[in-house]
Design a protein around this nucleic acid. Structure first.
Length: 551
RNA sequence: GCCCCUGUAGCUCAGUAGGACAGAGCACGAGAUUCCUAAUCUCGGGGUCGUGGGUUCGAAUCCCGCCGGGGGCACCA
């Protein structure tokens, strides 16, 4: 990466100029304006506080040293008030193309993670109903982050935490039980706060089929049966949806097993040993406020039941201590943000570095249809199932749209636009670029050209400005991947792909690739196209979006 | 009341470990195909970066106040 090379050169020059003084944070960036070169740095400006020299003078000294690096730079320039601008030699970019082609599908991969083991936990929706559009965003985001992290040197493990215990599960069981009664002709009032989606009727029907004696049972027993059946059926449905959405987990982790295996007890023992638990109002509390949480938290309610938090403590203790993950990355809905400090407080209490837990809060999805906002609530049974979305919009377009915005921005999902297979829908723009290149290669083959080989690449023949633009964009890919990984931001890849596709379409429109009268140029241009195709494919893979060969 | 996110072009959003005259897509208007896929390309108008201060050589970006939008402040998850 050019940036890294410039960094090294700058820091060598710095030592040469001023000895080894601490380097303040500075920037090497691609300037927005062409007149400022390909890269620019503000190092002289940030250094001014450390020295007596004027920024412009420091910059000039830097420039003097750096301009001797003739392989990389064609020009180094200093501009007021002290920016140093670099122009990269065209040959550098041309040579780089060879490297892209050599690396193939490995191009862009790197070792940021240094084999650290990271557990990515995402979706983890309660099995109380089908996945909806909001879960879809989490699914796309988590899956893509997992792909990006493993592409950048982390050992990634994907997990779904099943909340199969607690109050909500009981309400689910009761909801089914009541619907079963209703189906058997009983008139009743369906309570507030119960699950009233149509799927509850389906499960109730199934319950009556499986257990013809259901309504003769003691209520507690019957509700239990309903609950177990409901969880199983819903979970099965969730798994199927996620698979269709191309999201596959390494593990499905059941909350209730934490209790069965004594993990919860163990964690409570550890806290107790540190004198961090106390009783109040008949409940058991954890002194979270000692660890930067807003208040103390209940771990066992006065009815002797554990809270969700208690299970989560045990779960995370196991993640870090017993299962030995270096990092845990959790993707939560933004409505859970208050919960972050609670969990971190627990980690601090047990002397586990809370930095090892990273929580990405994903903002809401607003569904827009016909220009109007649709509201969503699982309990009310008003939601657009992910299933429907995949069916109507398609997996590719759905994922692409979800991955086109940063997590902290609420997403307006415009159903009508998403369904359009047109210009307005960016996913096709990128895929089309890929398909076009594939078609080029078919055409080449049909015209009797040999398969492309690196020896046929004569980069000195690349002279069009659209070709340079492509070369530069291709060169930039690893930096984009790095930043997507560092910031856990798949949308950076999405945006990059749009940029690359645009540059390709422009090139394609303006220049012919296959020129029977000039085979050298043809092969070289095909090489450039092949590199584009490759990077498009790799980038789309990171998003979990397909790269079709035809459209 | 407290906490988190957010306010940038008509719309949807980039840009926020400070940097050089503020970007993209869509929409809108005008054009391009005898030739490798027109799901393409070219040109065009468009913005008090919510607002008022402050820090700085330099602020969309950092700090403080105010206003607007979303979410959260349970012995629910």
């Amino acid at each position: 990466m050019i940036k890294k090379r410039i960094k090294t050169l700058l820091e060598e020059a710095l030592t040469q100029l001023l000895g080894s003084l601490p380097i303040p944070p500075y920037e090497i960036e691609k300037p927005k304006k062409e007149i400022y070169g390909d890269y620019a740095t503000n190092i002289a400006l940030v250094l001014k506080n450390k020295t007596n020299l004027k920024p412009f003078q420091i910059a000039e000294k830097f420039a003097q040293i750096l301009s001797e690096e003739r392989v990389l730079f064609s020009k180094v320039e200093v501009v007021s008030p002290g920016f140093i601008n670099f122009w990269i030699r065209e040959e550098y970019y041309k040579e780089h193309l060879r490297e892209v082609l050599k690396k193939g599908e490995k191009y862009g991969s790197q070792d940021l993670g240094q084999e650290q083991r990271v557990l990515v936990e995402f979706v983890s929706a309660n099995p109380t109903g089908p996945l909806h559009i909001g879960h879809g965003r989490g699914a796309a985001y988590g899956d893509s982050i997992a792909r990006i992290l493993s592409f950048t040197g982390y050992r990634v493990f994907k997990e779904y935490y099943i909340n199969d215990k607690g109050t909500q599960m009981e309400i689910l069981g009761r909801s089914v039980y009541l619907r079963a009664k209703e189906l058997s002709g009983e008139k009743l009032v369906f309570p507030e706060g119960y699950y009233r989606g149509a799927y509850i009727y389906e499960i109730a029907k199934k319950a009556l089929e499986n257990y013809p004696f259901l309504l003769d049972l003691e209520e507690k027993k019957a509700v239990e049966l309903c609950q177990t059946l409901a969880i199983n059926l819903i979970l099965e449905d969730i798994k199927k949806d996620l698979e269709n959405f191309r999201v596959f987990y390494d593990n499905w982790y059941s909350e209730s097993t934490l209790y069965e295996r004594g993990k919860v007890e163990k964690v409570l023992r550890l806290l107790k040993a540190k004198n961090l638990l106390y009783e109040k109002d008949g409940a058991l509390w954890f002194k979270a406020s000692l660890f930067e949480d807003a208040k103390d938290r209940v771990v066992m309610r006065s009815n002797k039941e554990f809270t969700y938090f208690t299970g989560d403590m045990a779960y995370h203790y196991e993640k870090f201590v017993e299962r030995g993950f270096d990092l845990a990355l959790n993707l939560w809905g933004a409505d859970h943000h208050g919960y972050v400090s609670r969990l971190k407080a627990f980690l601090k209490a047990l002397d586990i570095n809370s930095e090892r837990l990273k929580v990405i809060l994903i903002q809401m999805v607003n569904l827009i249809e016909g220009g109007k906002l649709k509201s969503m609530s699982t309990r009310q049974g008003e939601f657009v199932p992910l299933k429907d979305l995949m069916e109507e919009v398609g997996v590719d377009a759905t994922r692409f749209i979800f991955l086109s915005r940063s997590a902290e921005t609420p997403l307006d999902f415009d159903l009508d636009l998403a369904k359009k297979q047109s210009q307005e829908n960016p996913v096709y723009y990128v895929q089309y670029a890929h398909a076009r290149i594939c078609s080029l290669f078919e055409k080449a083959k049909a015209s009797g050209l040999k398969d492309f080989h690196l020896e046929n690449l004569k980069t000195e023949l690349l002279s069009e400005k659209e070709e340079f633009k492509l070369l530069k964009i291709l060169e930039n890919f690893p930096e984009v991947v790095e930043s997507a990984s560092l910031f856990l931001a798949p949308y950076k890849v999405t945006q990059y792909l749009l940029e690359l596709a645009e540059a390709f379409h422009e090139y394609y429109t303006k220049h012919r690739i296959i020129l029977p009268e000039n085979l050298d140029l043809t092969y070289t241009r095909l090489g450039l196209c092949l590199a584009c195709k490759l990077v498009l494919k790799v980038g789309l893979d990171l998003l979990g979006v397909s790269a079709p060969e035809r459209m």
